[in-house]
Amino acid sequence: MSTPVVRLAMHSMFGRTRALLLYALPVLLVVLALLVRSLGGDESPDRAESLLFIYGLGIVVPVVALLATTTLINSELDDGSILYLLTKPLSRVSIVASKVVVVLLAVLTCGALPLGVAGYVMVGTADHVALAGLAGGAVAGVAYTGIFTALMTVLQRSVIAALLYWLVLESTLASLLGPARWLSARSWGSAVLESVSTVSAGKPDVPVWYALLAAPVALVAGVLLAARRLSTMTLSDE
């Protein structure tokens, strides 16, 4: 990894007003969590888990990952500013890895961590809901980072490809076709969430061991594919 690239990425990610977008959804999650807590009752753990699953894993984590990868990878490829990094004595893998580390930091702090905070706000430490939200969010965040990085670089930097993955494969196909869940970062996150939480005793969509393995593999594959794509960049490649 390259320290100057990480420093630049940190500035780009957190030092600009667009960072406010990253904070909007997690803030809303915590607000909803406060609302759930105010409702009280015996169903609180169920409601808490549902909120973390539907809004947390379903929206907050993928949207934060999408915003973060767009900020650090897609926009620099689109406007060509990444050429200033590519023409330096740094390997392509090192450049991508440095950026992905910062994307991951954003996803974990603005995606996974708020799930844990929201869980704690709703039910404290009961039923391990907070821990489950944190762990599930982290696994899904790692996976989304790798998948979006790959899709945005390999498929002509397409944000649309990332959106199709999220909206079509995950939100539609995965609920209709069981095997599609094996390719779904959300399913991997929810498998971990459900295994840590003691609220529901349902069977996860995919085995936990698979989710724990698939997420880092997706991350590494995303870095390598993106680095490979960057190795054939041209000056007019806007």
Binding site: L8, H11, S12, G15, R16, D79, G80, S81, L83, Y84, L235, S236, E238
Partner: peptide, 10 residues
């Protein structure tokens, strides 16, 4: 490069 876009926030 010909591209005008730099890291404009720097």
């Amino acid at each position: 490069p010909v591209q005008e876009q730099l890291y404009d926030y720097l």
